[in-house]
Nucleic acid binder design. Structure first.
Lengths: 238, 238
DNA sequence: GCATATTTGTCCGTATGTATA
DNA sequence: CTATACATACGGACAAATATG
């Protein structure tokens, strides 16, 4: 098929196109398995502290143990699971120190993205849309959707940098933060008080005032961290 | 010629690799193997673009393919190697976009650590020591030691946060940044102009003026990134 | 504390597919 | 086009550590 000369339309150049084939379908089994497990963990099907039994997962997914173990290594490096030698692989149970770390990095990253802005960013639509989603979720008393909208908001903020690797870093932080909420008994309305602040940040960005938006966001995240740590140490199951 | 296994690994040396087998004794085999390869990459024995031949490494280190593949997954997740499906594992060749990303995160993290400081930090000794090491290296015309001292300086800065996970994050960034210098022809004296700035930052921290130190560091890193990107696109081998 | 069953850690053999000379 | 070397993935094996009764 790729070698059939009739496949080529005259006048069209495909020079170097083959180099990009790697971008199409090329993903290893281990990555695919990791993606499946990552999704299960994110949705809370696998809860923090749960052991992930090799044999059972191997039989369910129809992959070999070696492949699954490669996937475990990936997730371990993402801090979504911990691998205890000769004991197995467990969904990570974040410590308060982990929470502090996550918020520390979030503040540094998110604020550094918006602080330099002096004009309204072109792609502010996605940010505003996330806030509106949050408002609708709040009106509909949908705590889960409110949490999702909040995550979208912060991912959209970081996306302003136009740095795909920064997006990936942020996704990892938020994925880990999700574990914190899965540990808590009642995380539903945690994000409620922060929706008005999100709206104010959008307004400041639309006014081209990045520094003020960053300052507000910084305070916001400090407050959120404190509130979360209080609730976390109170609610989390040992 | 066709049967010589070394023919495949043209440019890759595994001489002395067996010496590092002593490191294989503490945690899981995969982590140990990853540590060995990480060290080899950091020191430039494996250069950016080099393929890491599975069979040869397996034979040299005396571990199974499965274990080595787990180690490769770890290194891939650290962005030190790229795994091209059915082609193999290669030491990563950073792009200019990667350099920009690394400096973006460095600026955000490092500045966020020292900006809040209002009193001289207790553990400033390690920072000052790194600067002094740099001064000695410069006097001794030792470019390699100068680079090492510079890395120590920045790691010590981040260590002020007292966050082990932040230290690990920073180590990863600097490990990847090392790849950039391994690609360049003459990175030896790149850090020279920044030693005086390091000294000034130490002075500001000793004066308890975190915000000024952070501002200086931010400018510093912007300059370094620009200079590095210029030199990188000029010097890097294709 | 002991014996047993289970699970993990690691290695090996092998079949299949892919890329390259 | 063929041949070859290599990577991918699977399955089986066994020792070691852990969990269980």
């Amino acid at each position: 098929m790729f070698n059939d000369p009739h496949e080529y339309a005259s006048g069209v150049t495909v020079d170097g196109l083959a180099d990009d084939r790697a971008l199409l379908t090329q993903t290893s089994r281990a990555e695919q398995v990791a993606a499946v497990l990552r999704a299960r963990i994110a949705k809370g099907f696998f809860r923090p502290g749960d052991r992930l039994p090799e044999q059972e997962i191997v039989e369910t997914l129809g992959v070999s143990r070696n492949t699954l173990r490669e996937a475990f290594r990936l997730l371990g490096h993402e801090n979504l699971v911990v691998q205890e030698l000769n004991r197995g692989t467990f969904v990570r149970v974040p410590t308060p120190a982990d929470v502090a770390h996550l918020y520390r990095v979030r503040r540094a990253i998110e604020c550094s993205v918006i602080a330099p802005l002096t004009t309204p960013p072109a792609s502010i639509g996605r940010i505003a849309a996330a806030v509106e989603d949050g408002r609708r979720a709040l009106d509909a008393q949908d705590g889960l959707a409110l949490g999702t909208a909040n995550i979208d908001f912060h991912e959209a903020l970081v996306a302003l940098a136009g740095d795909p690797r920064l997006d990936a870093l942020m996704r990892g932080l938020l994925a880990e933060l999700r574990l914190v909420f899965h540990v808590m008994d009642n995380p539903r309305w945690f994000h409620e008080p922060y929706l008005p602040r999100n709206e104010k940040i959008v307004a400041m960005l639309e006014a081209g005032d990045g520094p003020s938006a960053a300052a507000l966001l910084d305070n916001y995240l400090v407050d959120a961290e404190r509130q979360l740590l209080e609730a976390y140490s109170r609610e989390r199951r040992p």
